[in-house]
């Protein structure tokens, strides 16, 4: 399931994404890796996350059917484009592979 975003303020990612995902068995990093497996590049990945947050749907989710059956599909985000971009940017920076391999 995608990210759950609930507020517009400083630290939009921490405020709107992290709290809900803490309750889920699949971490944000694991979800990021699922996005990587499907979408590969940075622009592609960010665009797909943004699209899913704006138009969540079972058919385009990167999560397994079992996960969706158990936790369902997230509700549509009401964050603005700028807020979504900011949150996704933080998410990307936190878990990206670039520069982390040795």
């Amino acid at each position: 399931m995608g990210l759950t975003l609930v507020g517009v303020a400083e630290g939009v990612y921490e405020r709107n994404c992290v709290p809900c995902h803490q309750a889920l068995p699949s971490t944000l990093q694991q979800m990021f890796k699922r996005y990587l497996l499907v979408y590969s590049g940075e622009k592609n990945l960010k665009a797909s996350i943004k699209h899913y947050l704006q138009y969540p749907d079972r058919s385009i989710s990167v999560m397994s059917d079992l996960f969706i059956q158990r936790y369902g599909i997230k509700s549509k985000s009401w964050l603005s484009d700028a807020e979504l971009d900011e949150a996704i940017e933080v998410y990307w920076d936190q878990f990206k592979v670039f520069g982390r391999l040795q």
């Binding site: 979408y39 590969s40 590049g41 940075e42 622009k43 592609n44 592979v97 670039f98 391999l101």
Partner: peptide
């Protein structure tokens, strides 16, 4: 390299 031809490593 990723899908955008950017080197990952």
């Amino acid at each position: 390299y990723d899908i955008e031809l950017v080197p990952i490593f």
